[in-house]
Write a protein that binds this DNA or RNA. Sequence first.
DNA 1: ATGAAAGCGCTAACAC
DNA 2: GTGTTAGCGCTTTCAT
Lengths: 346, 346
Amino acid sequence: MYDVAERSGVSIATVSRVYRNPDSVRAGTRERVLEAARELGYVPSGNARGLASRTTGVLGLCFPDYADPEAEADAETDSGADDAAMLYSDQIIRGMERAARRHGYALLIAASLQGGPESLVAKVAGRVDGFAVLAQTVPTEDLDVISRRLPVVMLAGPREIDHLDHIVVANAAGERELARHLIEDHGLRRLAFVGGDPESPDAEARFRGFRDACRDAGLPVPDAPDLRTGMMTRAEGARAAETLLDRGAERPEAMVFANDQMAVGALRALERRGVRVPEDIAVTGFDGIPLSRIVRPSLTTVRQPIRQLGEQAVELLVQRLADPSRDPVSLELPVALARRASCGCG
Amino acid sequence: MYDVAERSGVSIATVSRVYRNPDSVRAGTRERVLEAARELGYVPSGNARGLASRTTGVLGLCFPDYADPEAEADAETDSGADDAAMLYSDQIIRGMERAARRHGYALLIAASLQGGPESLVAKVAGRVDGFAVLAQTVPTEDLDVISRRLPVVMLAGPREIDHLDHIVVANAAGERELARHLIEDHGLRRLAFVGGDPESPDAEARFRGFRDACRDAGLPVPDAPDLRTGMMTRAEGARAAETLLDRGAERPEAMVFANDQMAVGALRALERRGVRVPEDIAVTGFDGIPLSRIVRPSLTTVRQPIRQLGEQAVELLVQRLADPSRDPVSLELPVALARRASCGCG
DNA sequence: ATGAAAGCGCTAACAC
DNA sequence: GTGTTAGCGCTTTCAT
């Protein structure tokens, strides 16, 4: 910058103005500065700028790296098993990127490298004006400290820290409506629920919704999912479907999966075993990933507005940046039941 | 940081050491510092750190925002029309993120807001140690200037600036092999090629590969694609298929689409018109998106290692960061023909 | 409209 | 092992 100033015969202050507020500099001067900058290959330092102005123009996102181990395998086996994970965080990223761009921000993303130094969050936190965190990515303690200095919004998870903004989707309400549909509209009574890790707040909330529907309908209310899988992948869904099938006389009339991935895997497994869907058994998912619309039979599911999750996160951050003293906000995004072929509709 | 130093009774240098090189500080001292930091809600400033150390620990990615207008429509219509665009840049993002993480970097992403100030690139460039650019995202002139100051790698496009590293996928070779397969292995002779915007280097390269195969086989060599679409979307693919069908006597034996999205759209359109694939006509795509494997009939296509594109980009950046004087590298990533049902295989 | 000067919060020698 | 001291490259009053 000093070089540019010298070369164009002005002061560094003027060079600064050319970039920050072009109109405050006479056109002729501006041209000379720009020309000099071009010749010298000058690139303004975002760091210095950020240091001096105390803002970065960047918003951040921290997310867990669940997809990793499978992604590796996937590339080789062509199994596509990690699409769900990919789509979930990818859609949030896209949503945030879009919204951030609208507001003039760039997006810094980082997956939570397990066990590293406290580096990850710290690294992100120090370089952004505010950021979003996917549930179970960052130790609550760290978040507590960081959120004292800059805006943080929690995504999809319990509200661990009560002074933070946070956003969830209506998991329980969505699953409840889905199960109600199965029970009332299709007259099914023996529903099996396949959940995930008990630590997953989403999967658990969905199970609660499922229970609610059972209770509403006067059916037996299960204490726990009929089955649980670890990563909620396609392969695990297929296995779960077979397990359920092999229970013999107890075969359910519907398999309610906690996410689409498992449901898709189940569809394949059932096809292999010659079980017809939805004639012999209904199958449902949750999420509304693109696949769910394309598989045959198309999958009845609950559509989650994932991209909006990202967009709302940015909105909340921007709002809080504008008014730091605003009360913490807690949003629940609505979901929509998608009735398709796998439950006997469409 | 000064506050932390004071509170824990050490100098700022020691505080700095606690974060940068914990082992160089006695355990007791370290604890006191960390404790003070916690109490004060101290978050190290990435900007200041970057300024002083002249590195950011962040890598960047600039990509075009083609998906935008459709994404909007998509959310409402449930048509899923923007999946391709989404997957392409998303996969690159994921690939880069993964690789970046392995090397201890975070990822800064920004889509090229058309017509904004020269802000976008400049903003990114000033905040990263190096970055990747998707073809046709940033004016060559800007890149020229910026690449004098930090490593830049061009992705998927012509090598606009010869001193830059750049990576492409084997578009021409892949399409050529695909067309060869159709002609030689399936004995098809009347192939129709549906391309995209003439400005798209990928689509054009694929068309060249198609021509090569025609020439190789002694078939008439077309000067231009039989049809072009603007955005290469599903809807456009469907329309293209109908147009091709309506040409009456000239109906081709195979429709070769420049990407999977269009091919998937075509599959739907043909189904609606009662044309059987592959019995009545073969259909092929290019990209190897997840959908291609799932549609019925499954789509014969050329699988592009998009995620690897991102990973390689990071490798190149890291290498150049380590040795700035290394000669520019030019990689061509291999593609693989995926023979599936839509051409009569599988 | 432009210049001068005082930091922004940290790292990196270099002393001790 | 820890403290001192320069900057890093920019923004921002405050003058002029």
